[in-house]
Design a protein around this nucleic acid. Structure first.
Length: 262
DNA sequence: ATGGTCGGTGTCCGA
């Protein structure tokens, strides 16, 4: 089973690229974030035509939005609210083989890494605290789980182009990476990409639009993740970042991340 | 310390 996650940054603008991605990578399940698309405007027909008739979408006008797109049927679709907000940052489904899949768009957190003066950063930390608590207390029947999405945190030293320069920058501050470590320990989650590509090899999934040439400076961050619960670790058969998609015309600032499970 | 670029509820705000 191939799972792909992509922060698409507008699913309607980039629908042709989503179709291209489905054709090139042939995922069983594609999780999208930042769809920026209300549910009644989600492009169901084009995705059905591309061979993906099973779709769950949770979006709003202009901001946020997540979707799960699959070849095979799923059930038990749930959209949870976090930090008391109904802002389209989560969807979960139950796949046919019994795996429960959670797709997240964690708040970016703004520019100042201080929850006292920056409400967005406070929101991000609370969101992470709720994730850890939720997974500690919600695991029906010891089910296998997948947690994926844009978590907006680069957890490890070699997940950023410069650890030293990023330590005070939102996405790589110790308060965030420690919070994310707490989420990871809630169920002993396995970071599938780091399982396949251990540190110190550098892996990124996001490069700013602002760089003159993102390939030359290669100042990236690994913000997009695919985690599995420990019993699934032995089934991880591959994982990579589809960097080519970051080079497509008018593409997202994120690249898709891929995990294969035997 | 600054400014650089995208997308959409667009001429500002969030990323």
């Amino acid at each position: 089973m191939r799972i792909v996650t992509w922060n698409v940054n507008s699913v309607r603008l980039r629908l042709p690229l989503v179709i291209r991605l489905l054709g090139e990578l042939s995922p069983d399940v594609l999780c999208l974030q930042e769809t920026k698309c209300p549910d009644d405007k989600f492009p169901h027909l084009e995705l059905i035509d591309a061979g993906y008739p099973h779709i769950a979408a949770r979006g709003m006008k202009g901001y946020n939005g997540v979707a799960i797109i699959a070849r095979r049927p799923f059930s038990s679709t749930v959209a949870l609210d976090w930090v008391g907000r109904d802002d389209s940052r989560h969807l979960s489904v139950l796949l046919e083989d019994g795996i429960e899949l959670h797709n997240f768009y964690v708040p970016s957190g703004g520019n100042t890494p201080d929850p006292e003066v920056n409400d967005k950063f406070d929101h991000k930390l609370r969101f992470l605290d709720e994730m850890a608590e939720w997974f500690r207390t919600n695991r029906p029947g010891g089910r296998d789980l997948v947690l994926t999405g844009d978590l907006n945190i680069a957890p490890f030293e070699h997940d950023v182009w410069s650890h030293r320069q990023m330590l005070k920058i939102v996405s790589h501050t110790p308060v965030e990476t420690e919070r994310l470590a707490t989420v990871r320990s809630s169920l002993g989650w396995i970071d599938t990409i780091r399982h396949v590509i251990p540190e110190p090899e550098r892996v990124y999934s996001w490069w700013s639009y602002r760089a003159r040439d993102w390939t030359v400076s290669d100042r990236g961050l690994r913000l997009d993740h695919i985690w599995v619960t420990p019993d699934l670790a032995s089934r991880i058969s591959g994982g990579f970042v589809h960097r080519e998609a970051r080079g497509w015309e008018r593409t997202s600032d994120h690249a898709p991340v891929v995990t294969d499970l035997a």
